[in-house]
Computed example of a mutant assay.
Amino acid sequence: MTQAFNPTRRLVCGTLASLPLVGLSGFASNAFAQNSTALKISHQFPGSTGNDGDFRDRICRIFAAEVEKRSGGALKFNVYPGSSLMKTNAQFSALRRGALDMSFFPVSYAGGEVPELNIALMPGLVTSYEQGFAWKNGEIGKALNDLLFDKGAVPITWVWEAGSIASKTKPVISPDDVKGMKIRGGSREVDLMLKAAGSAVVTLPSNELYAAMQTGAVDSVITSSTSLLSFRLEEVSKHLTTGRSKSFWFMAVPLLMSRAVFEKLPKDQQTLILQVGAEIEKYGLDAVKTDDRNVATVYQKAGAKTYDLDAATVEKWRAIARDSAWKDYAAKSPNCARFLQLAEKVTG
Rank of each mutant, 00 (worst) to 15 (best):
K282P: 00
L117P: 00
G284E: 12
P175C: 12
P115L: 08
S93H: 11
G124L: 05
M122P: 11
A217S: 12
A212S: 14
A143T: 02
N335Q: 14
E139L: 07
K345G: 01
D292L: 14
R232G: 03
S71D: 04
L24I: 06
F231S: 09
F5M: 03
S128I: 10
S42C: 12
K282E: 15
E263H: 05
S164P: 09
F32D: 04
C60I: 04
K168Y: 09
V314N: 06
R70T: 08
T15K: 09
F63I: 08
M257H: 06
A337R: 10
G26L: 13
E234G: 04
L39E: 02
D286G: 06
D57P: 00
W249G: 04
W160R: 03
D177T: 04
K246M: 14
A312W: 01
I280N: 05
R322D: 15
C60Q: 06
A304Q: 11
P171Y: 12
A337C: 07
P7W: 02
A166S: 15
S108D: 14
R56S: 09
D146K: 02
V276E: 10
E279V: 11
A197T: 08
R188Y: 02
D177K: 02
D177W: 10
I280E: 01
R61V: 02
Q91N: 10
G348M: 07
N118F: 03
N294D: 14
A153Q: 08
Y210I: 03
E235F: 00
A74H: 00
A4G: 05
A330Y: 03
E279S: 15
V346L: 03
R244H: 10
L255I: 05
L19F: 14
V126Q: 07
K142P: 00
E161F: 06
N335W: 09
I183L: 13
A331D: 15
D323Y: 00
L309D: 01
F248I: 14
N118P: 01
D323W: 01
A120F: 02
I59H: 03
E279I: 10
N137T: 14
A74D: 01
S103I: 00
W135I: 05
R56Q: 12
P106H: 09
G72L: 06
V314M: 10
C60A: 15
G284N: 12
A217V: 05
T88P: 00
V126F: 08
I119C: 05
M213N: 08
K170G: 07
P266E: 13
L75W: 04
L85K: 12
D101H: 13
V172L: 15
T223P: 09
A343W: 00
L209G: 05
D177N: 14
I320E: 03
A330M: 06
Y109K: 10
A296F: 01
M181L: 15
G124N: 06
E189A: 14
T223V: 12
P155F: 05
